[in-house]
Each structure stands twice: as C-alpha cells, then as structure tokens.
C-alpha cells in the first residue's frame, strides 16, 4: 500500500523512525539550547532557529531509548514542525532520506506504550521496521 506521500527517514537511539514530510517545516542542525528548568525531562530547552524560538523535544526520552552520550543528549539534528502556533524541533541522531514509502498499520495487538503511542503506522526499511510517528502526538506526549 503506497499512499504516494513523502516520508522523512531518521534514526534515534538506533531505531528507525519516519515522519510525514508534509508535517515537517524544515530540518536543521540543532544549536545550543537554553534549558527550561522545571519543564519535563522530555523538553531539552529552547533554541533559536534564526529569529524564531523553537522548543526542542528530547526524542530519546519521549521514546525511552538510550541516549547516544554527550552533553546535548543524543540528537544533534532537528525536525522542525509548527503545531498550534508553536515551533518545535524534534531531536534525532541522524536524518537519512526523504522517500516515498508504503506505510501500513502497526500489527494488531502491539502494545504501544509511552512515547510509542505516537506510532501511526509502520514501513519496511533496510532490514528493519521503520516506525512512523505522528509529530503532533509525539509533541503532546513530550508535554505529559
């Protein structure tokens, strides 16, 4: 089943994930962030993307994956999206490709817990299953 839509392929903590390219504003190298003490650990802080301030989502923590080490956590690349008038940068380790992929529903019976509740489909990658994440849901889960 190909829905003919473009997807962004990325990796976080060794896991392959997918985003709907139409939901993505841009892809950036994440600059240093200003922490927001008191906010959940899933929020890395605020980063200025040119003159706009984005809230950086610590994707590893949302998904419960091991961090790649280093001060800034694992992800140094950011998938930028605008949700309800707020700009977010979802941190990922690597960004591979933009591709048209066949996405099918997650297998019935899979328990998708925590951040994985944002999974809205799966697709076949290179010897791995790519989990398609709904950005809006992912950002919501980061805030919980």
């Amino acid at each position: 089943m190909s829905d003919g839509r473009l997807h962004l392929v990325a990796h976080v903590g060794g896991r392959g994930i997918l985003f709907d390219a139409s939901e993505v504003d841009s892809v950036v190298d994440l600059p240093a962030v200003v922490p927001a003490p008191g906010a959940p650990a899933t929020i890395r802080g605020l980063a200025a993307l040119r003159s706009r301030v984005a809230t950086v989502i610590e994707t590893h923590r949302v998904l419960g994956l091991p961090c790649g080490g280093g001060e800034q956590g694992g992800g140094t690349r950011g998938v930028v999206t605008m949700i309800d008038g707020h700009l977010y940068a979802v941190a990922v380790d690597t960004l591979e490709d933009v591709a048209e992929l066949a996405v099918c529903p997650a297998p019935a019976g899979m328990a998708l817990e925590g951040g994985w509740a944002a999974v809205c489909g799966v697709a076949e990658g290179d010897d791995e299953t790519l989990m398609m994440l709904d950005l809006r849901r992912l950002v919501e889960l980061a805030g919980d």
């Binding site: 927001a36 906010a39 003159s51 809230t55 309800d84 008038g85 707020h86 950002v139 805030g143």
Partner: peptide, 19 residues
Amino acid sequence: VKPAAPAVMSTGIYAGQML
C-alpha cells in the same frame, strides 16, 4: 514576549519566551 510551548508553560513558572 510570545507564549512558550504548552509543555514549558505547564510548569507554571514561566510567562512566555523572548528572543
């Protein structure tokens, strides 16, 4: 001043963000 993201505002100690 602009409003910050809900996840940040929900801490209850911030009123917004500035650049």
